[in-house]
């Protein structure tokens, strides 16, 4: 469990995070939801330690991360896996080398064979067992995300962070990526945080949803609760999705099965 308390961050007087407190729960997909420019990426950067917050604290399973000693931070960092918005694969290395890289750097006592096995296992886990020898420039965007996930989970991470794992992907592929992340989260009981503005992800894998708006947390809850949330900004956000609007219309016309129908059925069929 990751506890974020009262986090603040400004850039040259422009306050981006205005005192955010929330918890990211273990074994669940924690969705950070919010419009463009609300500070989701900044929040995640602070949590993983790429940026230093001005104020507030972040605690990883009881260990304070902010302002602690280099050794402690290093210890926590090695348990973090991250999938970047643009995948951030090392483009001078093959796909397999990319996945092997964190193992090579972080677990030097692992034998060559164990490493190979682990790489093979991770690539298989994301459905890319045949792409190991390709270069990142030779694979599609969706495949890159999968490699990014494989690389993040290779060293048995305890915390997984994904910045918009399905941006720029077609709906079917993005649902597959979402499901992959959710499966991995539940299978290994890790703490996962996912940035998204995709309502498909929300109704699909939102175990715990945190809604951010202009640098503040306005709401949190799960995917069943979100459709009945009474926060105006959140309602505006949700119902700007035409799919949800259409379902809402169906609900109004045909009675209350519309939204539930949308949340449960068509997604799991794809």
């Amino acid at each position: 469990m990751i506890e974020i308390s009262n986090l603040e961050k400004s850039f040259d007087g422009n306050q981006v995070l205005k005192g955010i407190s929330c918890t990211l729960e273990t074994g669940k997909c924690n969705l950070l939801l919010g419009g463009s420019g609300t500070g989701k990426s900044v929040l995640l950067s602070c949590v993983v330690g790429l940026m230093k917050p001005d104020l507030g604290s972040i605690t990883f399973d009881g260990t304070v991360y902010t302002n602690s000693k280099v050794d402690i931070r290093q210890e926590i960092r090695r348990k973090i896996g991250m999938l970047f918005q643009g995948s951030a694969l090392f483009d001078s290395m093959t796909v397999a080398k990319n996945v092997e890289f964190p193992l090579q750097m972080l677990t030097p006592d692992m034998s060559l064979e164990e490493r190979r096995d682990r790489v093979e296992f991770c690539l298989k886990r994301v459905g890319l067992e045949n792409a190991g020898n390709k270069m990142p420039s030779e694979i599609s965007g969706g495949m890159k995300k999968r490699v990014g996930i494989a690389r993040a989970i290779a060293p048995n991470c305890t915390y997984l962070f994904c910045d918009e794992p399905n941006s720029g992907l077609d709906p079917a592929t993005s649902i597959k990526i979402d499901e992959l992340i959710a499966e991995i989260t539940h299978e290994y009981n890790i703490t996962t945080a996912i940035i998204t503005h995709d309502m498909n992800s929300v109704v699909g894998i939102g175990d715990h949803i945190i809604f951010l708006h202009q640098g503040k947390k306005l709401w949190d809850g799960n995917k069943e609760e979100i459709l009945n949330a009474q926060v105006p900004e959140l309602r505006e956000f949700i119902f700007s999705s035409s799919l949800v609007r259409a379902a809402k219309r169906v609900e109004e016309e045909d009675g209350p099965q519309g939204l539930e129908h949308l949340a449960a059925e068509p997604l799991s069929e794809v």
């Binding site: 330690g49 790429l50 290093q74 090695r78 973090i80 991250m82 970047f84 483009d91």
Partner: peptide
């Protein structure tokens, strides 16, 4: 520069490197 803008440097940092 390319590694920086494509977040490859951030990826290294997150790994604790």
């Amino acid at each position: 520069g390319t590694m920086r803008i494509t977040e490859q440097i951030s990826a290294l940092e997150v790994m604790g490197i």
